[in-house]
Design a protein around this nucleic acid. Structure first.
Length: 275
DNA sequence: GCGCATCGATATAGAGCTCA
DNA sequence: TGAGCTCTATATCGATGCGC
C-alpha cells in the first residue's frame, strides 16, 4: 500500500488552500473550501488506493477523476449522496419506502443493493478544530446510524483529516499563513474519539461505529505536508505526551482500505468487487 | 437545449456560557 | 478573567431541476 497518492493529495490540498489565502484572504479560503476542490484530492487518493487493492475500477462511484455522479443512498431516516462508493454486481431494484420519515420516497437502489455497497465518507477540518469537534463528531456518528439502521451489514468507512497545528483564522484575514500552537489534549481527544467508533464488529449492534476509520493527522506547516503514521512520530513532534500509551495504528491510512475490504469479503463471503 | 432558480455540501466562526 | 466549550447561523460553491 503506497503512501504516494495520499502524500500528493495533501500537498495539493495545502497548495490550493494557501494560494487562496495569500491571494484573497479569508474570502478566498472560504471560496476554495466551498468549491470542494481541496477535499476532492483526498477523494481521489481513496479511489486510487481501492484500485491498487484490486477493486474493479468500474465499480467505484463517482468514477476516478470525476466528482459526479455520486450515489444517493437511502438509510432509515434520510437519503444522502455518498462521497466514495464501491458497488457490487448485484442488481439494483427500485423500492418505494414505506416507513417513517422516508415514507413514499423512491429509492432507486433498494435495500439489497445498498447493503452490498461500501460507502466511504471523507471530511476535513483545518481551523477552529476543537471549537467544532462536537458538531462534526455528532454528524459523523449520525451518518453511520442512518445507514446501519436500515442495512446493518453495510460496510462503512470514514476518512477524517485534521490539520495539526491548525491554521490561524485571525491571520488568514490578513492574507497570512500562520499556524496556531498545537494542543496535545485536542490531538488526544480526536484519537480517542475516532478509536471509539472504529472497527465495528458483527452486524447486530453499534450502528454508530464504522467498519473502518482513518484519522489523517497532517502538519500543513511543513513542506511537503507531514502525515503522521505512528504514535512515536507524534511524540517526537510534541503533539502527544511522551508517556502516552495511545496507539494510532488502527486509524492509519495504510490499514484503512485493506481492513475495510477484508470486512466486506468476510461479511459477504465474496470477492465480486475485485477486478 | 438554454438559462435561471434551487438545493445540498463544503465547514467555519461569533456569541454567550461554564468553570477553574 | 480567560480558555474552552456549546449552540447556532450562515455564505457560496457546483450540480441538478425546472420552465419554456
Amino acid at each position: 500500500m503506497s503512501l504516494k497518492s495520499i502524500q500528493k493529495a495533501v500537498d495539493d490540498f495545502k497548495k490550493l488552500i494557501e494560494t487562496s489565502i495569500i491571494e484573497k484572504g479569508e474570502k478566498g479560503k472560504e471560496a476554495m473550501i466551498r468549491s470542494s476542490r481541496p477535499i476532492l484530492n483526498i477523494h481521489e487518493a481513496v479511489k486510487v488506493e481501492l484500485v491498487e487493492a484490486g477493486i474493479n475500477e468500474d465499480l467505484i462511484f463517482p468514477p476516478l477523476n470525476s466528482r459526479t455522479p455520486e450515489l444517493k443512498l437511502a438509510g432509515s431516516r434520510k437519503q444522502k449522496n455518498q462521497d466514495v462508493c464501491v458497488v457490487s454486481n448485484i442488481d439494483k431494484a427500485e423500492e418505494i419506502l414505506e416507513e417513517g420519515l422516508l415514507q413514499d420516497v423512491v429509492d432507486g437502489y433498494g435495500e439489497k443493493f445498498t447493503e452490498r455497497t461500501i460507502s466511504i465518507n471523507i471530511r476535513s477540518q483545518i481551523s477552529s478544530i476543537q471549537k467544532n469537534f462536537d458538531t462534526l463528531y455528532e454528524r459523523t456518528t449520525s451518518e453511520a446510524i442512518n445507514l446501519h439502521d436500515r442495512c446493518p451489514k453495510m460496510v462503512l468507512g470514514e476518512v477524517y483529516m485534521i490539520a495539526v497545528p491548525e491554521y490561524d483564522d485571525k491571520e488568514v484575514k490578513n492574507n497570512e499563513i500562520v499556524f496556531k500552537k498545537p494542543n496535545q489534549a485536542t490531538v488526544l481527544k480526536y484519537i480517542k474519539s475516532f478509536q471509539a467508533i472504529n472497527n465495528r464488529k458483527g452486524i447486530e449492534k453499534n450502528f454508530y461505529k464504522y467498519e473502518k476509520v482513518c484519522l489523517l493527522i497532517v502538519d500543513f506547516s511543513q513542506t511537503p505536508a507531514k502525515l503522521y503514521n505512528t504514535s512515536d512520530e507524534l511524540k517526537e513532534a510534541g503533539l502527544i505526551p511522551e508517556d502516552s500509551i495511545i496507539d494510532i495504528s488502527e486509524l492509519s491510512w495504510e490499514k484503512f482500505v485493506s481492513d475495510l475490504l477484508a470486512v466486506y469479503k468476510n461479511r459477504f463471503a465474496s470477492t465480486d468487487i475485485e477486478s
